[in-house]
Structures are given as structure tokens and as C-alpha cells.
Nucleic acid binder design. Structure first.
Length: 417
DNA sequence: TGACGTCAAGATCCG
DNA sequence: CGGATCTTGACGTCA
């Protein structure tokens, strides 16, 4: 079983994908962006390996305007070596990657221009995975598309378009139930008929359930048969509702108890789980640490190093409490640990907590900072106490110092996010 | 025509 | 002038 996350990584400096608007998309600008984005991908793959994450969705923005006339570069040749190098790494790390064109790639549209752009977009996604020299188990996840007032003919449009795709694209595609139009039973019908593996998405299924009533685990088990051995292990998408937002919005973090409840009902490990969640890699590591058989407390200590200042800002009491539960090196209190983290992070940062934590962090620079840096920091703290500036202004200053002095412990902290 | 989702880029404002 | 904050872009469907 692999557990992973989509597109972006939280808490790593200079690991953001870059893009530009169409009117600025000159050849040289695009070259610069592609080169930067491939470096970022390489960094993320290394990060994933270091953190035991073996499932990752590559952002569709890897190549800006990759499927559009706005990008006329032969990027697959120009950056071929770089792609191959990253692909080799992915294989060496035994990772599985995927891509997921958004809701705007519509293969069954009634507008032929939209369909041909969708085909171009799929060609682009397949080309990225081909350039990485990855096999057929590295998939492209696609939705069925629109309904246009007549679902039966919309489905047959999808089938027609799908069947006329080149086979090197077809064999990468897997289809997913969406939250508006196509329920899991409809997608399963299509997938079974055309031999396309089906990805079950639990939140989409909740918002747009099938008329046929089955529980989540039954649907997941039904989907399994659509995955042939050359497709790799079955994949599902898992996400949770953000209670503060509209139905279908992904939660900030994966609430671990709810995940573990799902996981135990699943009672299978021969499948991969792609998390769709705002805090990305953080939830992936959390879910991995709570389901792993390794159960090494060092994993939790590493997590604590990242979270501790975010906890301290919100609750000194919980900070002390969590330190206490990590004391016993023979135990592995992962669930308790993450419960405490989740509970604490729901709270607002207090002024007192912010000041205290900032001074804590300043401790790394006290001895090495210049006179001017001392003055600026003290001034900021006074302003913060008086309510004249916000905490993020102080944090940005501390981040600047962290980068300047390359303070490793802080570079990996979530304090600045 | 605007909401929907996504996220930087780009534009503008502020001290 | 640099940094913070607000707006736009790019996509297709649907009400």
C-alpha cells in the first residue's frame, strides 16, 4: 500500500511550481519556467523518498501551456535528459506517480474544438509520463465530462472519443467518479465496458451518490476488478469534507481518527490511496506514520521538530504535554500525538503565544545576528505586543534570518507556513 | 453572465 | 523601494 498527495509540498523552501500568463509566454520565459519546474519536481521526489512517501501526483502545470499553441517548444526533446534522470530516480525509489487533468479537460464535449483540445491535453500528460520513461501503472486520472441534457448520448460520446485515442494514451487513462454528474456506478459501467480502470473518490461519492446503494468499501472492492495487473495496484482518492466550507470542499488536514476508521473498514492493503487535502505532504506523512508497521518513535520526533513552534504559538500547555508523550522511547504514541497536534492547530494564535514563540525562534540567531538585526527584531516584538503589526510580519523577518544563516532546524519547520 | 476550483502571476497599495 | 494585499488568468459546464 502506498499513501500519497497531490502536486505541491508544504514546508519546503523554493519548491513551488512556476507559471506565467499567456501573453508573457515567450520561448525564453517558458524555457526558464520548465527548467525551474523540473528542478522543483526533482526536489519533491527526493523529499518524498526521504519521508517514505511513494505515491505522488505530478502537477499539470509542470510544463506551462504544455498542451497549448502558446508553447511551441519541443520541450520533450530539449529537456529529455532531465526528464529521464528524474524518471530513473522515481523508478529507483519505487515510487508511483500520476497526473490529473482538471475539470476543464472534457473528452465528451458537444463542441469539437473542446474535444480536440482535450485530446491535446491528454497527449501532453501522456508525453510527460513517457518522457519520464515510466510504465503503464503510472496513470492519468480523468473525469467523464458533461451531460448536455442527455446522459446516454454523452456517455457514448465519451466512449467514441476515448476509443479513437492513440493506444499509448489510452493505456494510461483511468476514470473517476465526479461530484456533479457521473456517479461511481455510471463510471464503473463505462470502465467495465471499455476496460478502463476506475478510481473511486469517497467525497465525490458522498456528494453525488449512485442510485444503487452500496457502502464505500463495497464500491472500492467492486472497482478492483477493473484494474488489470499491468495497471498496477488499484488506486482510490480519499478526502474529507471541510466542515466550515461548502459541500465537496477538501479539509485543511486529514482528521486521523476518521481516516483510521475508514482504513480499518477497508481491511485491505493491496491498493494505493491518494489524499486530496490542503496540507498535502503533511497529511500523507501523518497517515503513513499511523498505519506503518515500522512504529519507530524517531519518525514522531522528526514530526515534532516541524510542528513544535506552530503548537507553542497556540498553547504552551499542549506543547509541554506533547513533549511528555514523546519521552518514552519504547512507545509509539502516533495516534495520540497527531490527535494533540490536530486539536492544537484548530486554535487561534494568541499574542502572548506569538511573542513567546518568536523569542524562542530568535534564540537561534541571538548570538550570530548583527546589531542592526537585534534592533529590528526587538522593535518588531514591541510592535507586535502593542498590536501595531501582525505576527506574519515578525515571522517573515525570522524567515529571512533563517535563510541568511541557513538555520537547518528552522528551514524544515512549519512555523513559517 | 457568474459560480465553480486552483494557484501563481500580475497589479496595486502602503509605509 | 520593498513588501503586503488584492485581482486576474485559464480552462468548460451549467444555472
Amino acid at each position: 500500500m502506498k499513501i500519497g498527495y497531490a502536486c505541491q509540498v508544504i514546508g519546503i523552501l523554493n519548491a513551488q511550481q512556476k507559471s506565467c500568463i499567456q501573453k508573457n509566454a515567450t520561448d525564453s520565459k517558458l524555457r526558464e519556467l520548465i527548467s525551474s519546474n523540473l528542478n522543483v519536481l526533482d526536489t519533491i521526489i527526493d523529499y518524498n523518498f526521504k519521508n517514505g512517501i511513494k505515491l505522488f501526483r505530478i502537477s499539470s502545470d509542470l510544463i506551462p501551456f504544455g498542451s497549448s499553441q502558446a508553447n511551441k517548444l519541443n520541450w520533450w526533446e530539449e529537456f529529455g535528459d532531465e526528464f529521464a534522470r528524474i524518471g530513473t530516480k522515481i523508478k529507483r525509489y519505487k515510487m508511483r506517480v500520476s497526473m490529473h487533468p482538471g475539470q476543464y479537460t472534457v473528452l465528451n464535449s458537444t463542441n469539437p474544438d473542446v474535444v480536440s483540445r482535450a485530446v491535446e491535453d491528454l497527449r501532453y500528460h501522456a508525453r510527460v509520463l513517457d518522457c519520464l520513461q515510466l510504465g503503464q501503472s503510472h496513470k492519468i486520472v480523468l473525469h467523464i465530462g458533461g451531460v448536455y441534457g442527455d446522459k446516454i448520448s454523452a456517455i457514448s460520446c465519451f466512449e467514441k472519443s476515448f476509443l479513437s485515442l492513440p493506444s499509448k494514451i489510452k493505456r494510461r487513462i483511468v476514470i473517476e467518479n465526479d461530484d456533479i454528474s457521473y456517479s461511481i456506478s455510471e463510471v464503473l459501467d463505462i470502465g467495465t465496458r471499455l476496460g478502463i480502470p476506475v478510481v473511486f473518490d469517497n467525497l465525490h461519492n458522498f456528494k453525488n451518490p449512485s442510485e444503487i446503494k452500496k457502502n464505500e468499501v463495497d464500491w472500492i472492492n467492486t472497482c478492483k476488478s477493473t484494474w488489470k495487473s499491468e495497471d498496477g495496484d488499484q488506486k482510490i482518492h480519499y478526502s474529507q469534507q471541510d466542515p466550515a466550507k461548502r459541500a465537496g470542499s477538501h479539509s485543511k488536514t486529514i482528521r486521523i481518527n476518521e481516516f483510521l476508521e475508514f482504513f480499518s473498514r477497508l481491511s485491505r492493503t493491496d491498493l494505493d490511496i491518494m489524499l486530496e487535502v490542503k496540507d498535502k505532504n503533511l497529511s500523507a506523512i501523518k497517515c503513513i506514520n499511523c498505519t506503518t508497521e515500522a512504529r519507530k518513535i524517531t519518525a514522531l520526533e522528526n514530526e515534532w521538530a516541524k510542528y513544535k513552534y506552530s503548537v507553542l504559538e497556540r498553547s504552551h500547555k499542549n506543547y509541554v504535554e506533547i513533549r511528555k508523550i514523546l519521552k518514552d522511547k519504547e512507545k509509539y504514541p502516533a495516534i495520540l500525538f497527531y490527535n494533540m497536534i490536530e486539536l492544537t492547530l484548530e486554535n487561534e494564535i494568541t499574542i502572548g503565544g506569538a511573542v513567546n514563540t518568536a523569542q524562542h525562534v530568535w534564540g537561534y540567531f541571538k548570538k550570530i545576528a548583527t546589531k542592526n538585526e537585534h534592533d529590528v527584531f526587538l522593535k518588531r516584538i514591541t510592535q507586535l505586543k502593542d498590536g501595531n503589526i501582525q505576527i506574519h510580519t515578525v515571522k517573515n523577518y525570522l524567515l529571512k534570518l533563517t535563510v541568511k544563516y541557513q538555520e537547518k532546524y528552522l528551514l524544515e519547520s512549519l512555523y513559517f507556513d
